[in-house]
Design a protein around this nucleic acid. Sequence first.
DNA 1: TCTGGGGTCCTAATCCTA
DNA 2: TCTGTAGGATTAGGACCC
Length: 462
Amino acid sequence: MDAFFAQAEQASKPSLRGRAVVVGGLGPRGVVATASYEARVFGVHSAMPMAQARRRAPNAAYLVPRFAFYRTISEQVMGLLRALSPLVEPLSLDEAFVDLEAGGAAWDSDSARLAGIRLRADIRAVTGLTGSVGLASCKMLAKIASEQAKPDGLVLIEPGTERALLGPMSVRTLPGVGPATGDHLRRAGILTIDEIAEAGEDELVRLLGKAHGHALYAMALARDDRPVVAEREAKSVSVEDTYDVDIHDRVRVELEVQRLADRCVRRLRGAGLSGRTIVLKVRRYDFSTLTRSETLRGPTDDPAVVREAAARLLDSVDSTGGVRLLGVGVSGLADFTQEDLFAQAAGDRTDGPEEELAEVEPVGEVPVPVEHQWRPGHDVRHAGLGHGWVQGSGLGRVTVRFETPESEPGRVRTFRTDDPELEPADPLPLVRRRPEGDGGGAVAGAPDPETEPSGVESGNSA
DNA sequence: TCTGGGGTCCTAATCCTA
DNA sequence: TCTGTAGGATTAGGACCC
């Protein structure tokens, strides 16, 4: 999907269509998750600190991510992919590999192209959003093709043309080559994919180590025989928080670690898992990051056990100077617990860990009444004015724009944050389902947005 | 005004054990 | 019983991805 989060927000909010939209954390330490193509014109991109984005595009709309909303769209798209083939490997909410041959959806270039064209049309019809398709003989090339296809396009790499196409490209084009590896290669005088191939496998291994060296050399020769794997099992579960202000108080640090341990266990249990290795992550005031881990005798999903292990790990960490991030994770996952085995043996366990978890009280946060949390971008409903979304809030006021995915750009009104007529609402579907028997399909609710890059946002950010 | 959150994979050092 | 060694497990850190 193209600039997925931002595009979903634009489809959901007519007044944002054609405008620069930036989705990400809005706190003092937030970063950009996705920038719309209109925002990218100003040099805003993913992972950029939000403060920098605001300097570059002061007139963009800044929104917090709504993952539940994006997930519903993602499920629709994944459903379309699974209709093409049983072999679908999701990489994230907005990206997946599909083995078209395994599904019988394609057997040569022409049939693949046709499947791709249909898929893009289906995604448009079902979600109202644009997605790009990369078609190639292997995963690495399909990925590169889809990058080239963005936004709103389709690129097919013909078999036999792979090496010629890759050769002149930057080494950074290859998946797995980030800033560090790119630098490493540059210092060795290797800038293009051709130069990786020329350097030879031994040199690559010498430069980058065994695994990375072999893998990169193979990719440079357009060799990638990794299969598309549906159903990949999670290897770890973790939660982490970056704090708006560094925490100096050791007691507060300890309480936060307990909270994170509980949250991690909740996620673990939600997935029906347990784990044997507990990991504590600490990012200090100077951004130096350290991890400490401990492996238990057997897997657990007991909050008390994870809390205690995390606390022990914290004992070995010096937090003077302050910490900006804390995290707790569990790896070495299993779908059973050691306690299960003991319980089976003893047969006398009565109180489930559920209750222990329920006793944990949230700490370290000022309680805020739910009705006062008006987060930018989130949907609301007003008793008299209908559906809208929060444009901003503060100083006891909340500004709402009243519009729906299918309406014209709407009016803005401001209310007191405790206005009883205003309440949070679920997102509206982007595409309205037609009534049964009316063709059965879906109709795109959004007016056809111009796909030409229109360079909106007149003027430049100063 | 620096730099999120949730992951995966790899490497290297160290420790333990057969 | 002592010693050397090979290999697996554990631990910590780093790179990368979306």
